[in-house]
Every structure is written in C-alpha cells, then in structure tokens.
Amino acid sequence: MNVTGGCHCGNIRFEAEVDPAAVSICHCTDCQRLSGSPYRASVRASADKVRFSGSEPAAYVKTADSGNRRVQAFCTLCGSPLYATSETDRSTLNLRLGAIDQRAALEPKRRIWRKSALPWSEDVTHIPAAERE
C-alpha cells in the first residue's frame, strides 16, 4: 500500500510502500513515554521504499527493555516521532502510524509488550465519548 505522511509542523514529509499486514501496537514503557500515550502504533516498511523530503529527521539511540538498541527518528522543529529502526540493521523502518495520512486504513494486526500495558487501555469503550469538543 502506498502511503504519505509527515510531521505535525510539515517540516518533514515522506512517501512509502507499507504492508498493511505489518501494523502493530507496542505497549512497552519506552513507547508509552515516547508517544505520550498508553501505546504506540507503527507499520514496517523496507527502508529502500521510503522517501523523505523537506528537512532530515533527527535521531538518537535508545536501549530498549529487550536489550536492542533502537534508533528513534523525529522532527527537530515539532518533535513528532516518525520512525524507529535497528541501530545495526537499518533496512526496515517502523513508521509511526500517527505520522501517516492514511492511518485510518491501517488496522493493527498484533500487539506486543502487553506485560507493560496500562490496564485501563485495553478497553475504552465504556468511557463517555464526544464527537468533538
């Protein structure tokens, strides 16, 4: 599936080819902290099928709970997370679903690091909702 996306301020844009079957939700504490939410959703893409325009994303390396060293890329102006990848093998990018324009069409297929899931985040259907506020 061809997708487009970018950061919140528009400083960075991208086009990519993603596999809709490779969408996941991660409940790890790093993803909670990095996203400012109970979990982070992402989709895998081959790095050679992602094209960035505008400014170059900034990045830093974080050792995850798994022990893997993960590169976290983001916009230097607005701080929007764009992707994560392995420090040693950057052939696959995990594009952040929130940065993708077509995110509504990319339904998660799996959840990982559920042991860190916030108990209330598993089902929010009972919480009163408003279409707009």
Rank of each mutant, 00 (worst) to 15 (best):
G5S: 05
H8P: 00
H8G: 03
C9W: 01
C9L: 00
G10N: 07
I12A: 10
R13F: 03
A16S: 06
E17N: 11
V18K: 09
D19T: 12
D19E: 14
D19L: 04
A21W: 02
A22D: 15
V23M: 01
S24L: 04
H27Q: 06
H27W: 00
H27C: 02
H27N: 15
H27A: 03
C28N: 05
C28A: 03
T29N: 13
T29C: 05
C31I: 00
C31T: 04
C31H: 00
Q32N: 01
L34E: 05
S35F: 04
G36Y: 00
P38I: 01
R40K: 11
A41N: 02
V43F: 06
R44L: 14
A45K: 10
D48P: 08
V50G: 08
R51Y: 07
F52K: 07
F52I: 07
S53T: 15
S53A: 14
S53D: 10
G54L: 03
S55L: 13
E56T: 15
A59D: 09
Y60R: 10
Y60D: 04
V61I: 12
T63C: 09
A64W: 12
N68S: 11
R69D: 13
R69S: 10
R70Y: 05
R70W: 03
V71A: 09
A73S: 15
T76Y: 02
L77F: 04
L77S: 09
G79L: 04
L82R: 10
L82E: 06
S86K: 10
D89Y: 07
L93Q: 06
L93I: 08
L95G: 10
L97S: 03
G98S: 02
A99Y: 05
I100H: 11
R103N: 09
A104I: 05
A104R: 11
A105P: 03
E107F: 04
P108G: 04
K109G: 13
R111E: 15
R111C: 10
I112P: 05
I112R: 11
K115G: 09
S116A: 12
S116H: 12
A117R: 03
L118E: 08
P119F: 02
P119E: 07
P119W: 01
W120A: 01
S121H: 00
T125I: 01
H126D: 11
I127Q: 10
A129D: 15
A129H: 15
A129F: 14
A130C: 11
A130I: 12
A130Q: 15
E131P: 08
E131C: 04
E133C: 09
